[in-house]
Nucleic acid binder design. Structure first.
Lengths: 245, 245
DNA sequence: GCAAAAGTGTTCGAAATACACCCATGC
DNA sequence: GCATGGGTGTATTTCGAACACTTTTGC
């Protein structure tokens, strides 16, 4: 390893924050004010501070936009609800027209109630359903969002990540709707319920029930997230195989 | 995003190159000559050139040590044999005592015949069985190797990556020994053979056979790598579930 | 022939799928 | 009651684990 003559790099952490909005998988975007791609939508993110690593920078940037504090752990699970994990690093020399910027991208999963669009500016921070992203994003952020969606889709199969989309207490049908929204395919309710409740550590039962909706129906039981982070055996998508990581 | 006052970062690409040596999963290490951790074993790697991205830098560094040229593609598959894919990025502020160094780590998988230790220096580049790594490595490279091993173990389950450990033409038992070496557990030969040959696109049959060994035995058929990169349904490890990515 | 290694056949049980049916609520 | 949504029971089928057994070589 040489230790001189290396060119100047800027390093950023960019976050693909995801949640369910009105039952649709959505990502958080911010409208750029400054020069390159001014007016375009982009991922929240920013430069690493001198004393912080990329995990901390991602958590900080996410907190600045959503008001939520997620402490990333080894497997991405956070102390409370939510999830924050590294996705991959994008380093194409031309990805920022100003200079050499290497971006460490993250995926965050937030429970739906936390959709608070507090943070910095008001109408310049918005959730977009991923299926509605038919306009170009700044930099290579469209590609990053695509990679993040594919990561999340694939991780629902063999981890308990779906619970990160839910509030601390949730029902089995709510969890099922997470799978249906992310995978875009219906899932058999009875079999899903059995699978989830019989997989040790996925969910833990409480003795509470959510009140039935105004449309009627049996009040569903409430569950909390279990201690397991992997799902074994996995919950495989029926049809097409997933793309590799 | 600010565009000033960001501290100077150096960005490196480090490669965890893996292959089977004498039937054991092994990683390529180089002995450091220069100052921090001089004399210690470390991963091959180096700084990104001004005009190259991390993928290209990783491929270049690997080529300088092994003489092999692997062109990384979207899913990590390379044109010929072998495999090169991004692992994750390590950015702890204290990971290099000299300065702020962010390292984009890669995993490379090479076929056993390619163990040529040509490259730069002779005895300062060596393959080590991962189970024999009971000495400390330079920087945080021990952690990176651990993450790489876990990534490879997990990817054998749901991708056709195992074939990257093999020569262009290989037998089913050879492929099975890859799984056994990486997972460290025996696999039933008959069932494995059926699973592999019945999964469309994993391997394609040739009409050649490898000559039987001197110990006798039926000569195994030769196969080549198929076009599939994902394995569906996956080939799950029997016992303990894998750690999440 | 005998040992060794590759590959096939067969059985068994666990688990996913499909779907009929029962339960508990709002109106 | 009746519609709505949650949950259980059960038959079917598919798939993997285990292992007996056949094939094809070297010696």
């Amino acid at each position: 390893m040489a230790d001189h003559e290396h060119p100047p790099f800027a390093v950023t952490a960019d976050v693909v924050a995801m949640t369910l909005v009105a039952g649709k998988l959505s990502v958080l975007l911010v409208r750029r004010a400054a020069d390159p791609f001014a007016g375009s939508w982009a991922l929240p993110g920013g430069f690493l501070a001198p004393d912080e690593d990329a995990d901390a920078a991602a958590a900080r940037e996410l907190g600045e936009e959503t008001g939520l504090v997620l402490e990333p752990s080894a497997d991405g699970r956070t102390a409370g609800t939510g999830h924050l994990e590294q996705l991959r690093t994008y380093s194409d020399p031309g990805r920022d027209p100003r200079m050499r910027v290497v971006s460490v991208a993250y995926v965050a999963v937030l429970p739906e109630p936390a959709v608070a669009e507090a943070g910095s500016d008001a109408a310049d921070v918005r959730w977009f359903a991923v299926d509605d992203l038919d306009f170009p994003l700044a930099f290579d952020h469209a590609r990053i969002v695509g990679d993040a969606v594919e990561r999340i889709r694939s991780k629902l199969e063999y981890t308990t990540l779906a619970a990160a989309f839910c509030a601390p207490a949730f029902t089995i049908p709510e969890l099922r709707r997470v799978y249906e929204a992310v995978w875009g395919a219906p899932i058999d309710g009875p079999n899903f319920s059995r699978k989830v409740t019989s997989t040790k550590g996925f969910v833990v039962e409480t003795d509470e029930h959510r009140p039935a909706s105004t449309a009627g129906g049996r009040p569903p039981r409430l569950f909390r997230r279990g201690s397991a982070s992997v799902l074994f055996p996995p919950l495989l998508r029926a049809g097409s195989p997933p793309a590799p990581t």
